[in-house]
Amino acid sequence: MTEAEQESVKTAPDVAALEQEGDIAADYIEGLLDIADIDGDIDMDVEGDRAVVSVVGVKGIDLVGPNGEVLEALQELTRLAVHRQTGERCRLMLDVAGYRERRRSELSKLGSQISDDVKRSGEPHALQPMTPFERKIVHDAVAAAGLRSESEGEEPRRYVVVLPA
């Protein structure tokens, strides 16, 4: 096996392990929904190097909360439940009612708009504090616009600064 093939094997995600994480997470979330008497269906997928579990068909935004705070907390609890069963740290992504997909679209647009502003003004621009998920989306949008960005501050007040070229 060539060195490149060995490297590819090392970095390729273990789909079976990710599917197991998704199954454990889905069972955990389903149990929470039952306890809270909330109707919803669970979808599982693997995207890149992480399991994605989505709660669909739920009414209201109680499981998302203001600025996704409840969703972030549920995601952390779910990751802990997976870790407890597998002994491995996981990067599972939890979504409720398409919130993360909508947020991804909004933040990509924001990153592009701020990049345009920074290109015009030549001045750095700091954004509001964001979660790691949100910062990653903004960093990607800024990079796609040909600029660079950095995260500054301490959690939970960590934020992105878009820098001129």
Rank of each mutant, 00 (worst) to 15 (best):
Y99P: 01
Y99W: 09
R100N: 07
R100D: 01
R100W: 00
R100V: 03
E101Y: 02
E101A: 12
E101F: 02
E101C: 00
E101D: 14
R102F: 00
R102I: 07
R102Y: 05
R103N: 07
R103K: 11
R103M: 05
R103S: 01
R104I: 08
S105V: 09
S105C: 00
S105F: 04
S105D: 14
S105G: 09
E106G: 04
E106T: 03
E106L: 04
L107V: 00
L107Y: 02
L107F: 03
L107G: 06
L107I: 02
L107C: 05
L107R: 02
S108W: 01
S108L: 13
K109F: 03
K109E: 15
K109G: 13
K109V: 10
L110H: 10
L110W: 05
L110V: 10
L110E: 15
L110C: 10
L110I: 12
G111R: 10
G111K: 09
G111L: 13
G111C: 13
S112F: 03
S112Y: 02
S112E: 15
S112Q: 15
S112I: 01
S112T: 14
S112W: 01
Q113C: 02
Q113T: 11
Q113N: 13
Q113L: 12
Q113Y: 04
Q113R: 15
Q113G: 00
I114T: 15
I114P: 09
I114K: 10
I114L: 13
I114W: 00
S115G: 11
S115Q: 09
S115L: 08
S115E: 09
D116E: 12
D116I: 02
D116K: 06
D116Y: 01
D117V: 06
D117E: 15
D117Q: 15
D117W: 00
D117G: 02
V118T: 05
V118W: 01
V118D: 08
V118C: 09
V118Y: 04
K119G: 03
K119M: 09
K119Q: 11
R120F: 01
R120L: 13
R120W: 00
R120G: 00
S121H: 06
S121F: 03
S121I: 05
S121R: 08
S121P: 06
G122R: 09
G122T: 10
G122V: 10
E123V: 10
E123M: 11
E123A: 13
P124Y: 03
P124A: 12
P124V: 06
P124H: 10
P124I: 08
P124S: 14
P124W: 01
P124R: 12
H125A: 13
H125D: 10
H125G: 00
H125N: 11
H125W: 09
H125C: 12
A126P: 13
A126E: 14
A126Q: 10
A126K: 07
A126L: 05
A126G: 08
L127Y: 06
L127S: 08
L127I: 07
L127P: 07
L127F: 03
Q128N: 12
Q128V: 12
